[in-house]
Amino acid sequence: MKCEEYRRICNRRLDERNRSPLAAEAELHVRDCPRCNAYARAMFQIDAGLRSLPEVQVPEEVLASALSEGGRCVGPGRELLNRVGRGVAAGFPPAIAWSLGGLLHSPSDTAMQFLLVSAAVALFALTALRPRLSA
């Protein structure tokens, strides 16, 4: 095996949760080859340094702003409401089309009034709800 292969084995071993000992052949090479030996020790030192870095303290304001962001939006309950809202908003145009169809079949003043009112309500609901739902 080439030096590069031994170094790859050394590196891979650093990532193991329960480190197994190096195979006898690799162990011998890393012990006797000065360059691989230096490499293995350097990598071990970096690995140890990374494992011993102190935990980052989270500033209060990060949590506060995250919570305001979270409260404004995320969460399965809120998401469900949004989906229902979108569904209702999407249902308005077919409802108007259906009313129009009915009107053409049996025109009457009452039906016309009903259609105009429902069209106005639907338009208002669409313009008022859409931006909020997609925000």
Binding site: L53, E55, V56, V58, P59, V62, L63, A66, L67, E69, G70, G71, V74, G75
Partner: peptide, 16 residues
């Protein structure tokens, strides 16, 4: 969810 992930994400972002 934001409460749970924000500190973890901050630590990750800070180190990166």
């Amino acid at each position: 969810m934001a409460k749970e992930f924000a500190p973890r994400l901050y630590r990750h972002a800070y180190r990166s």
